[in-house]
């Protein structure tokens, strides 16, 4: 009799275990749909985000009249001053309005009046003061090793060229070419903690390159110039990304899923 009771109890226990397993299986199957919805929503956000970033990157390369590259040790910016903001802003707004109209989940910030590019890993920010024809390079979390500026004045004669600096071991150079073979070449070794400047005169007009505490700026005032800026920095190890300081926000209703993204342009 005891054997039979033991046998029955064992079978009952086994049945309970099997039943529990079946509940677990059924529960898992029920959550799969929810998981698919979550992953599909994340995929949707990824699609909208990457495609918008690609499109804005294309706009920037087409309409900003700027080129920008960054390697592990150097960032190079080529641009024309004055900056053609109107064309870039119109294209940016066209795509922004189109995206917002076509997908209510997308929010894109306006293009700031002063365009700002960030070289991520190198910690360098290039900021354009468009109304004043100033382009400025600032450091955020690293110290640049050298600055080099190449300026083309489109055949306007350079009349004089001067510099002031405190000597040190930081390389700071300005090479400018004007009309009739005039030029200005200043290669300075400066103290990076002291102010330095290069002043280029073009008759009644002038251009100033200023340096202060690892930041540098080119003030073109009312000149039309082509500027190439090279900034050397310590090896970042990985190729830096360049971001435009404007945001894309994407949300998916019904899910707690939001993405706040920077605009990567290179």
């Amino acid at each position: 009799m005891k054997k039979a009771v033991f046998f029955t109890l064992s079978l009952t226990m086994f049945a309970f275990i099997v039943l529990s397993l079946s509940f677990i299986f059924a529960g898992n199957a029920a959550t799969d749909d929810a998981r698919f919805m979550e992953l599909a929503s994340i995929n949707r956000i990824y699609d909208l985000d990457t495609s918008l970033q690609n499109s804005f990157s294309k706009i920037f390369s087409l309409d900003s009249e700027m080129t920008y590259t960054a390697s592990t040790t150097e960032a190079i910016f080529q641009q024309k001053i004055p900056f053609n903001f109107t064309r870039l802003n119109n294209s940016f707004n066209n795509l922004r309005n189109f995206a917002i109209y076509n997908d209510k989940n997308v929010q894109v910030g306006l293009l700031p009046n002063n365009v700002s590019l960030r070289v991520s890993q190198a910690g360098i920010v290039n900021w354009q003061n468009i109304s004043k024809n100033i382009t400025e390079f600032m450091r955020t979390n690293s110290t640049p090793k050298s600055y080099s500026f190449i300026i083309d004045f489109f055949e306007i004669n350079i009349t004089s060229c001067s510099s002031s600096s405190a000597s040190g071991n930081f390389s700071f150079s300005v090479a400018a070419t004007g009309g009739n073979g005039t030029s200005c070449n200043q290669t300075l070794s400066i103290n990076p903690l002291q102010d330095a400047s290069v002043e280029i005169s073009l008759g009644t007009k002038s251009l100033t390159v200023l340096f202060s505490n690892y930041s540098a700026s080119v003030n073109a005032r009312d000149n039309k110039v082509a500027l190439t800026s090279r900034i050397n920095y310590a090896d970042t190890g990985v190729k830096p990304k360049i971001f435009l300081e404007s945001k894309i926000n994407i949300t998916v209703p019904g899910l707690i899923a939001k993405k706040y993204g920077d605009l990567r342009i290179a």
């Binding site: 949707r44 699609d47 909208l48 690609n54 294309k58 294209s91 189109f98 997908d103």
Partner: peptide
């Protein structure tokens, strides 16, 4: 799914 793009044709986008 959906993706945005910037169609460039004959210099216009």
């Amino acid at each position: 799914g959906k993706r945005f793009f910037y169609a460039v044709q004959g210099g216009n986008a």
